[in-house]
């Protein structure tokens, strides 16, 4: 069969003409960043565990953009310009999020017009104060204070406090190579809590570990943590 080259040329022309049409949106460029804070102090949580939801109304059905906070309580989203509402769903996070009278999470209205930084104010049940974590002699030692922030009728007890050690920077109940905990009832002095954990053999060998302290509040799922520290020994 003879190939008619003019057809191929025409086909190429048609395809290229069809592609001329702009068929895609630009990716969102406005960034929304910030962190969880209590009176200016960052709230540390578990990696990929505490979610927040962004809603944008006016486009028919409503569904949330769900994201999670990083370990140090920071978050960042790339969004289109417009008005968003942000909530932390009920029962999430080691803190109290503002609620409406009906018990639904109260929303923060965010007007995106270019990038912005927005810290989210929350009230943690407890805070770990002045954590001092050091490593020596194959052990990780920690010394810290626990401050009870919520003291009203909704106050909650400490279930336990645990020192976590891991070989990577992700340190939590699920990600650790060593941990030592103490039950809430066994803590005698909230102003002087001491925990230490033995560093196990690490394969392949490394001369540093990451550690932080996590506090489990009774009846609350997510732990509140102290900042991660890198310990070289």
């Amino acid at each position: 069969m003879r190939i008619k080259f003019q057809f191929i040329g025409m086909l190429a022309l048609m395809i290229s003409a069809a592609s001329c049409k702009k068929d895609n949106f630009d990716a969102p460029t406005s960034s929304l960043k910030g962190k969880l804070v209590y009176q200016g102090e960052a709230i540390n949580v578990e990696h990929d565990r505490v979610p927040f939801e962004l809603y944008q109304y006016g486009f028919g059905k409503v569904g949330a953009i769900v994201q999670t906070f990083a370990q140090d309580g920071t978050y960042s989203s790339l969004l289109f310009n417009g008005t968003f509402k942000l909530i932390v769903p009920n029962g999430q996070g080691p803190f109290k999020w503002k609620q409406t009278a009906a018990g639904a999470p109260d929303s923060v209205t965010i007007n995106m017009n270019g990038s912005q930084v927005l810290d989210l104010e929350v009230t943690p049940y407890y805070l770990i104060r002045t954590p001092q974590i050091t490593a020596a002699g194959g052990k990780v030692m920690s010394n810290f204070k626990i401050e009870k922030i919520v003291t009203d009728a909704t106050a909650k007890d400490i279930e336990n406090v645990t020192l976590y050690v891991n070989k990577t920077q992700f340190v939590s109940g699920a990600d650790n190579i060593a941990n030592t905990g103490i039950g809430g009832g066994a803590i005698t002095d909230l102003n002087n809590v001491i925990l230490s954990a033995t560093i196990p053999n690490i394969v392949p060998t490394q001369n540093f570990v990451f550690a932080r302290i996590g506090l489990k509040i009774a009846g609350v799922e997510d732990r509140i943590f102290s900042p991660v520290v890198k310990l070289t020994f």
Binding site: P89, N90, G91, E221
Partner: peptide, 12 residues
């Protein structure tokens, strides 16, 4: 979204 009367599950 189709039926606003459906309430959300707890802790989600």
């Amino acid at each position: 979204a189709n039926n606003p009367k459906i309430v959300r599950q707890p802790n989600q």
